[in-house]
Design a protein around this nucleic acid. Structure first.
Lengths: 125, 125
DNA sequence: CAGAATCCAACCGGATACTG
DNA sequence: CAGTATCCGGTTGGATTCTG
């Protein structure tokens, strides 16, 4: 992103030096771009949700994935985990204020992809 | 995304049915969330860029990756490839109008992750 | 209920060498 | 220059089984 760019007379651009390794866009993607990460954050955005409910909501994702991504999200402070001392135990997940700062982007993305033609070739992953 | 949700008296939400498999957010991520995909689109957004320059700009990505992601992006119509009949051959890549529709949230993402604390644990991915 | 543990095939992606 | 081809170790993530 910080590469110094030159524009030649034909309008083409060339790099004079290298982009600082992980550009902001790339760094961001590593945080919320993981498989299911965005969906999970989206589903805990308006209130606490229980683990198994989340798993049901996301459907395509295995419990292993849900667990893994939730841990990431809580470690990073985007989601808060709460254990309720019921019997059997209840665990809920909810977005944090910090996590909320990512919702703008996610909503833009959501709107964008909802408007996409179904014919668009989507990579299997 | 379309799951019918119930809220109990404690404010917790539970799923009544399953989210249609690939939610919009997930679908979008599959298109633009691939490793280096966002960065590449970002770097061709204001003018044609040559292949090797792109490779230099992105730095961390191998030519193989650049090639692969560029093909995806052109296949999906987000980027236009142009071959100039020079010697040696010159190939440039440039964002299309359709690709431009993704810049909104990419910029959101960029701004978001630029404001992130460096201490944030980022998955190696 | 909310996970942890294990297994394993599939894919990903870097390195390297080669080509028109 | 702009890729392609091949190799190959590492990671991913689904399926399944087990646990407090």
């Amino acid at each position: 992103m910080e590469a110094r760019i030159e524009v030649d007379d034909a309008g083409r651009r060339s790099a004079m030096n290298t982009c600082a390794e992980p550009c902001a866009i790339e760094r961001g993607m590593r945080i919320i771009g993981g498989k299911w990460t965005g969906s999970i954050l989206w589903h805990v955005k308006d209130g606490p949700v229980r683990f198994n409910d989340l798993a049901r909501m996301i459907g395509g994702a295995s419990k292993k994935m849900i667990t893994e991504r939730l841990r990431q999200l809580t470690d990073q402070g985007l989601v808060r985990r709460e254990v309720l001392d019921t019997a059997p135990i209840t665990v809920t997940y909810e977005i944090t204020d910090f996590g909320r700062t990512a919702l703008g982007f996610l909503d833009e993305l959501r709107k964008w992809s909802e408007g996409l033609p179904k014919t668009l070739a989507v990579k299997k992953r």
